[in-house]
Design a protein around this nucleic acid. Structure first.
Lengths: 338, 338
DNA sequence: CTGAAAGCGCTAACAA
DNA sequence: TTGTTAGCGCTTTCAG
């Protein structure tokens, strides 16, 4: 293995200056057609590819975007990785993955990210979003929070852009469906108590319930984990006046819940218990679950994220919060209209 | 936003030379404790982080590893992303994602990858592995094929390392279980006809069947897709003498198959049809499926991949093929011993 | 152990 | 349009 050819090597072979080579590989630079083809031919022969790192050093843009995530077990996130990578690839950017480790604090991840001189950061991890988001904004690196917002209270809201579904409306849709179909003892299974996504879904849900003259009978937390969700469901249903409807903060936990309800407690879904999830992950459509759920459209969310990122990279410092509409997908876990 | 501090800024503040700063941030360089703390203090104050890109330019290593994937819908792959990222992060490397697009050929992806001067490549995408693997080896970039090998025939096998499960043994285990439990009309649902993984699993399966005096009654292909797998199952079972056992090349398709068999064709699993999958993705353990499957242990596979990568980066040119053992996980889709 | 100096491969003024 | 020149921020000889 000999080392990769440099621009100078191509220049030598083509008998032109090294800058000519640079220009040929810089979109929009002024090169004559003749020069261009001469350089291209030489480059071809040597198998020359510009060194993106050297280029980044001077242009001050790496064309790398950091993606910070933590729970890939929830299928929603892999889909985000896939769509986001594809979209960014089309725009000439690439995704550098950062898995947020529990023990490694926000600082560690941040230091790592910044060393790579990334052009932007997509935060799709609950745990370290708040701190990280602030630090990055301070440093002037474009950040978009994906599927979460910094601070619900709005008191210390940093100028961080975000892309979310209309979680409150999604919660509302769920509430309306339950009430319309005659469910009465309604429960909610939260994700994390400090997750904006879960909180907003719950807020929309309970508000709509109140509007309709019903109310939330019980609630518990599943920590976005399959196991914890199942434990929570056992607690929720271990009472005489057990719930007859359960709205779950996401599909991943909703599926966990269904296993407990149907297989462990022997309850009939949707007759004895109605269930609504959130996300519409592929598994929600699987035959054995047929989960009625609120759909989060990944593609529009990703598109918005990339748009926001590009906008901020161009120097638009105005942080924006984009809310993508979501719709109810009715399958088989809520009983039909009477 | 003012631009990030450079080593020179730190040097100025600490009243030392710029090289001193460099040395402080270079593990194993000789700096006195006094100098070190002086520099560190200044760096701290300015929020200095070494520019990894500039460093890469001279050290000729980017500490970036490219990961090429395509079908994230199969939950096995997200798990790989997660574990691999974590492991590499611990070793001081990071993962740059490349989603292999169908229309974009191998050349496009390769060009992209090489521009970033990655220190290594993990290929976990079926589609463009063969060509890519060769090109990279030629260029002297360490490559590890994950969960696939280049060329079964061995004729044109390039010196490419790989990490796979012992797919043939896995197939054998499946065959033995089916025969032991009295299944007789045995079918196989392949992934892709040219996928080494699928081929090896099938080979082990059919060979074991033959050894046991049984044989493969039917086979079809599901292209690793949920939809295609379901179509294939409909074809396989649309005959008078329908199979009573189905070995599927992976869990993703096995679950698709179960939906058709139980819900569409109304067959009893495991009594009327036995099913065995491959991978042991989290969903295989879900209550509604309880899929008996051959387990691929992600962690050992990832560990081996990283080891191989590091070894090759150190100049070991010797390509190795690591085979990780796999075990049968018995759940509820194969009937119990009589 | 420390500082000065020479680049890594490339882009971007600036002249011609 | 082209070539020349000066760095981007860092590591790494080489003297001292």
């Amino acid at each position: 293995m000999k080392s990769a050819p440099r621009a100078q090597d191509v220049a030598d072979l083509a008998q032109v200056s090294q800058s000519a080579v640079s220009r040929t590989f810089t979109p929009g630079a002024s090169v004559s057609e003749e020069m261009r083809s001469k350089v291209l031919a030489a480059a071809q022969r040597l198998g020359y590819r510009p060194n993106a790192l050297a280029r980044s050093l001077i242009t001050r843009q790496s064309r790398i975007v950091a993606l910070v995530m933590s729970y890939l077990e929830n299928q929603f996130y892999p889909l985000v990785i896939e769509k986001l990578s594809q979209k960014l690839q089309k725009e000439g950017y690439h995704v550098l993955m950062f898995i947020a480790d529990i023990d490694e604090g926000a600082d560690g991840v941040l230091a790592d990210i910044l060393q790579y001189q990334v052009d932007g950061i997509v935060l799709a991890s609950t745990m370290l979003s708040p701190t990280l988001a602030k630090s990055c904004s301070d440093l002037g690196v474009p950040v978009v929070q994906f599927n979460r917002i910094s601070d619900l209270a709005g008191l210390t809201r940093y100028a961080t852009s975000s892309v979310t579904s209309d979680n409150a409306v999604g919660g509302r849709l769920a509430a309306e469906l339950f009430v319309a179909r005659g469910y009465e003892r309604i429960a909610f299974l939260a994700g994390l108590e400090d997750s904006s996504t879960s909180l907003e879904r719950e807020r929309g849900f309970t508000e709509a319930l109140a509007d309709l003259g019903s109310d939330l009978a019980y609630r518990d937390t599943g920590h976005y984990s399959f196991q914890c969700a199942q434990d929570a469901v056992r607690r929720l249903f271990d009472r005489a006046d057990r719930p007859d409807a359960l709205f779950v903060a996401n599909d991943h936990m909703a599926i966990a819940a269904m296993d407990v309800l149907r297989l462990e407690l022997g309850l009939q879904v949707p007759d004895e218990v109605g269930i609504i999830g959130f996300d519409d992950v592929p598994q929600a459509a699987w035959g054995a679950y047929q989960l009625t759920t609120v759909s989060q459209r990944v593609q529009p969310m990703v598109d918005a994220t990339v748009a926001l990122l590009l906008e901020q990279m161009c120097g638009e410092v105005h942080a924006r919060e984009i809310v993508v509409p979501c719709t109810l997908i009715e399958r088989k876990t809520v009983r039909a209209a009477t």
